[in-house]
Every structure is written in structure tokens, then in C-alpha cells.
């Protein structure tokens, strides 16, 4: 609130000082450098900045993806080959070796890993986005929200490409190809959205203390087991109290939605859980964008 008042005061001073000069002195508006919008408008302001800089973001995303698959004979096909090979490994491991009676279990794990991977990688990349780009930050100014957004979008794009693997899986396991397959891209976006809020909340803090980066890496590893990657929502329900607790994990929704999409039926996930996840994502976006706009400028001085 103090900041908001401050801006109001400065704008007032600005208009006073302009009036006090004789004649129309300026042909362009005099703008104070580093003036921030009122705190509560930060979520909208951030979206506007992203839209305004879409050409830049597109170029940066393609730089990031290009860098990842550079000098590879198979190039982008690796986004697809990797999960396909994983699927084969899981099939052997869970169905043939461990004797899990459910043939589909391996594929549930696979889709879980893809969606969780999208969230985990996006989050880690967003948190370290400012520190990784410190050379650029010191030399040119553009809205810094571009950096975390670029990392997240690059991860969403590569995850989308690896989702192609579901088509052969559906063929092999005779799964019905229905409109519900759209749940899969939707959950990729949802996972990216959940990572965005938390990521931009922590990114400025990571400039000051890199401990955040290490902590997030641990959280992503531990979260893998807490989220329904190796288990499913239906399994959790049979577990009584633990199952009920698992429902509050926001990542349960995207992973379960994607699995239901793979199985080709409407989701059986209660609407309350989906709404809770959306609410959580929205709240994180609100807090994240406010914190980012508030502290980004101060924190880059630590880089």
C-alpha cells in the first residue's frame, strides 16, 4: 500500500511540475523510469506485458528449444522417442517383471511422468530464469516477466511434442480415440499454469539466495511421489484418510485428467477438486505476479 501511495504522489508532482513550466515544453510525455502500476493490478499488467512482447517471447522460446536439441541427428524427434522408449521400459518392468495385473498401469505411469515432468521442469526453469539470464538483464531492459514466461512456454511446447506418443499407445492398447483426448493438452497447460504462479513468486527471491533453486529441486523430486504419478486417484480413494488428503494436491487434477483422456472417457474427478486446482493456480498467479512486479527490480541488483 505504501508503494501505491508513493506512485500517486510522484504522478501528482509530475503533473504539477509540468504545469509550472511555461508553454508546451514537451511533445512526448515525460515518463518516470521504473514507475510501477498499483500492486493489485499486477496480474493484469503482467498479462499485458506478455502479449505486448509476444514476438520477443516467441524468438526466445525457439532459442531455448533449439539449444536443447542442438547437434542431434534426430533433433526434435527426441521429444517423442524419449517417452516412447520409457513406455517400453515401464511395460517390461511393471507388467512383465513385477507382474502387475493391469496392463495399462505402465501407461498411467508414463502419462503421469510426462505431466509431472512438464510441471517440474517448468517450475525449476522459471525459478532460475532470472539468474540464468543475468547477462541479458544487465545489458538491456525489457519487462522481466518475459524470462520466466519463456522458460515455461518452452517446456509446454516440448511436452506437447512428447504427447504425440499417446497415439501409438492408444493403437497398441486398443483404447478408444474420443474427443476426451483433448484433456491431455488441457492438462499440459494446467500443469504449466500451476508452475507459472509458484515460479514467478520464487524467481526474484532466487536472485538473492540461490538456496531457493536447490529447495525447489528437492520439492520437485519429493512431489513426484506425493503426486499421482506412480499411483492413481482411484487407488488413493481406497486408502481412506490418506486418499482424502491426496486430493488437496493441486497436481492431482492435471495428471488424473490426462490419464482419463488417455483412457478415452470423461473424467470422473469431482468438479470440486478441479475447481480447487483452478482456484489454487489463480491464487498463485495473483500472489506470484504481485511479488514478481514488486521485487523483480530490487532483486536483479543482486545478480
Amino acid at each position: 500500500m505504501r508503494l501505491k501511495k508513493n506512485i500517486g504522489l510522484r504522478l501528482l508532482k509530475l503533473s504539477l511540475s509540468r504545469q509550472s513550466m511555461d508553454g508546451p515544453l514537451y511533445d512526448t510525455n515525460v515518463v518516470e523510469v521504473g514507475l510501477k502500476p498499483p500492486l493489485l493490478t499486477a496480474p493484469i499488467y503482467t498479462v499485458k506485458e506478455v502479449v505486448k512482447n509476444k514476438f520477443l517471447i516467441r524468438n526466445l522460446v525457439s532459442r531455448e528449444i533449439r539449444g536443447k536439441y542442438r547437434n542431434a541427428l534426430l533433433g526434435y524427434t527426441w521429444t517423442f522417442i524419449e517417452p516412447a522408449l520409457l513406455a517400453v521400459v515401464y511395460y517390461f518392468l511393471f507388467y512383465m517383471l513385477a507382474g502387475n495385473p493391469d496392463e495399462l498401469y505402465a501407461m498411467w505411469v508414463l502419462i503421469g511422468i510426462i505431466i509431472w515432468g512438464c510441471f517440474g521442469k517448468s517450475l525449476q526453469a522459471a525459478v532460475s530464469s532470472l539468474t540464468r539470464n543475468k547477462n541479458t538483464i544487465h545489458l538491456v531492459y525489457f519487462p522481466r516477466i518475459v524470462f520466466p514466461m519463456t522458460s515455461i512456454m518452452a517446456n509446454i511446447v516440448t511436452t506437447m511434442m512428447s504427447c504425440v506418443v499417446i497415439f501409438p499407445i492408444m493403437l497398441i492398447f486398443n483404447l478408444p480415440f474420443t474427443v476426451y483426448v483433448l484433456l491431455i493438452p488441457a492438462s499440459v497447460f494446467l500443469a504449466g499454469f500451476l508452475a507459472t504462479g509458484v515460479g514467478i513468486l520464487l524467481a526474484p527471491l532466487n536472485c538473492v539466495y540461490r538456496d531457493i533453486e536447490h529447495l525447489v529441486r528437492f520439492i520437485v523430486r519429493a512431489g513426484f511421489f506425493v503426486s499421482p504419478v506412480m499411483w492413481t486417484y482411484e487407488m488413493a480413494l481406497e486408502r481412506g484418510i490418506y486418499g482424502e488428503a491426496a486430493v488437496y494436491n493441486p497436481m492431482l487434477t492435471p495428471i488424473t485428467l490426462a490419464r482419463h483422456g488417455l483412457e478415452g472417457h470423461a473424467t470422473t474427478l469431482p468438479t470440486e477438486i478441479i475447481l480447487w486446482t483452478l482456484f489454487f493456480g489463480g491464487l498463485m498467479w495473483l500472489l506470484g505476479s504481485i511479488a514478481f512486479e514488486r521485487y523483480e527490480r530490487r532483486s536483479v541488483k543482486y545478480l
Binding site: L14, Y26, T28, V30, G34, L60, T136, L139, K301
Partner: peptide
Amino acid sequence: SGIYPPDEGTCKVAGNISLLAGIGTGFSAH
């Protein structure tokens, strides 16, 4: 250019600004 906001005092500009420093920032080798 707005990279560092001042801690005290104000900096105001009229018109759009471009800072040329470290030519080739952000080049991607690949």
C-alpha cells in the same frame, strides 16, 4: 534505460529509449 530503478531521487524521460551495450546480447550459437 530502466535496468536499475534509482533508490532515491527520480529519473524521468520523454520518448522511447534504446541502450546499445554489449553488442550481440542474447545471441544463440545454434
